[in-house]
C-alpha cells in the first residue's frame, strides 16, 4: 500500500509514471512482452501481432477522435494508403522496410491532412460523413489507379528482411511490430504532456474557447489529422507486410467502424483505452471460439450452429459496454487501480 505520492517538481507532476510502483509494473509489462514469444504458440503470436497493428491504428484514431473530438471514419482507408505505399516501394524500389514504413507514414500523413480539410468547416456527424467520402475516394483510387495499385487484383508484398532473416511469420514479425507499437504508444502518451496535446484537448472541449486562448484551430486540427494518419499509415504498412497481399477490399469501411468501436469501447480520450479497445475487439471473438469448442461434445456440428451466436454475443457485449461502461474499459481499469491503492484498508 502506498499512502501518497508527493511531487516536488513540475516535471514530476507531469511524468507518465509517477511512482516506483508504476515503473515496476511497466518493467514487468515489458519483460512479459519480451518473454511472450518464448511461451506461446504461433496462433497466439499471430493474434498479438494483429492486436499490435490494431493498437497502433486505434491509438492514432483516439488522438483524432478521443482527444481532439474530430470524428473520423476514414482510418481504414488511411491504413490502405500506408499499405499501398509499402507495397509499391517493395515492388518497385526494393528499399529497406524501415524506409518503406516511414514513407508509408509520410505519404499517409499528407493524404490524411488533405482528407482533414473539411474539419476546418464542419464537425460532428458532418465531419464523419466527409471522412466517409474521403474513404470512398481512396477506395476508388485503389481500385482504378491500376499502374500503381494493381487494381482489383491488388499487390503482393515480400516479407521484411532484417539482418539476413525474413520476418515472414508471427514469431519473427513480433520482434518488429511489438517494439514499434510500444514506442508509438509511448509517443502518443507523451504528446499530451506537450502544448500540442493540450491544444487538442482544448479544441475537443470547446473549440471557440480554445481559439480565444490563442490556439490556431486550422493548424491544430490538421495537425491532429496528420498525426492520426501517420499512425494509420504505419499500421497499414505493417498490415501489408504481415499479410503479404493486399487489395482494395482489404480496407473496407467496416474496418474504420471497427476502429471507432475499439476506441469507444476502450475509452475515448485515453491512451490505455486504445490498447484495451483493440485487445477487446480482436480477442473477444477469438475467445468466444472457445465457447464453441466447449459446446462441441454436446452439440453436433457446434461450429456451424454456434458461430452466429458467437457473433451475436460479441455484439451484445459491445452494447453492454456502451450502456454500463460509457467511459470504456479504461475506466474499469482505473476503478480496479483505485481499489488497490488503499487495499486492504478500504474497500
Amino acid at each position: 500500500m502506498r499512502i501518497g505520492s508527493p511531487k516536488e517538481t513540475y516535471a514530476a507532476d507531469e511524468g507518465l509514471f509517477r511512482t516506483r510502483t508504476q515503473w515496476a509494473w511497466f518493467g514487468i509489462l515489458l519483460l512479459s512482452l519480451v518473454l511472450f514469444p518464448f511461451l506461446s504458440n504461433l496462433y497466439w503470436l499471430y493474434l498479438v501481432c494483429l492486436i499490435s497493428i490494431h493498437v497502433i491504428s486505434a491509438t492514432g484514431l483516439n488522438i483524432l477522435t478521443g482527444y481532439t473530438g474530430q470524428v473520423s471514419l476514414g482510418q481504414a482507408a488511411f491504413m490502405g494508403v500506408g499499405a499501398y505505399t509499402v507495397a509499391w516501394l517493395d515492388n518497385h524500389a526494393a528499399t529497406p522496410f524501415v524506409l518503406n514504413l516511414l514513407a508509408a507514414g509520410g505519404v499517409t500523413t499528407v493524404v490524411g491532412m488533405v482528407a482533414g480539410l473539411p474539419s476546418l468547416r464542419v464537425k460532428g456527424l458532418y465531419l464523419a460523413i466527409a471522412t466517409i467520402a474521403a474513404s470512398f475516394i481512396l477506395h476508388f483510387v485503389f481500385l482504378n489507379w491500376e499502374s500503381v495499385t494493381g487494381g482489383a487484383r491488388g499487390m503482393n508484398i515480400a516479407p521484411p528482411q532484417a539482418f539476413g532473416h525474413e520476418l515472414a511469420n508471427a514469431d519473427t514479425f513480433y520482434w518488429l511490430v511489438m517494439p514499434v507499437t510500444v514506442v508509438m504508444v509511448l509517443l502518443a502518451a507523451n504528446l499530451f504532456r506537450t502544448r500540442v496535446g493540450r491544444a487538442f484537448i482544448a479544441i475537443r472541449d470547446r473549440d471557440i474557447s480554445a481559439s480565444v486562448l490563442g490556439i490556431s484551430l486550422p493548424v491544430y486540427k490538421l495537425m491532429s489529422f496528420a498525426i492520426a494518419s501517420f499512425y494509420a499509415g504505419i499500421a497499414g504498412g505493417f498490415y501489408a507486410y504481415f499479410f503479404g497481399a493486399i487489395n482494395p477490399e482489404s480496407f473496407p469501411l467496416l474496418m474504420s467502424i471497427f476502429y471507432l468501436a475499439a476506441v469507444i469501447v476502450g475509452g475515448l480520450g485515453t491512451i490505455l483505452g486504445s490498447i484495451l479497445g483493440a485487445v477487446f475487439m480482436t480477442l473477444t471473438p477469438e475467445l468466444l471460439r472457445y465457447g464453441v469448442d466447449v459446446m462441441e461434445p454436446f452439440v453436433d456440428d457446434a461450429s456451424a450452429l454456434l458461430s452466429p451466436v458467437r457473433t451475436m454475443v460479441f455484439g451484445l457485449l459491445i452494447v453492454g459496454f456502451l450502456l454500463f461502461e460509457p467511459h470504456g474499459l479504461a475506466e474499469i481499469w482505473r476503478r480496479v487501480r483505485r481499489f488497490f491503492h488503499l487495499w486492504p484498508f478500504r474497500n
Binding site: Y290, G291, V292, D293, V294, E296, P297, A302, S303
Partner: peptide, 11 residues
C-alpha cells in the same frame, strides 16, 4: 473452458 476444450476441436 480452454483446458477442457483443448483436445475437443470442432471436428
Amino acid at each position: 473452458g480452454t483446458a477442457l476444450a483443448q483436445d475437443q476441436e470442432t471436428t
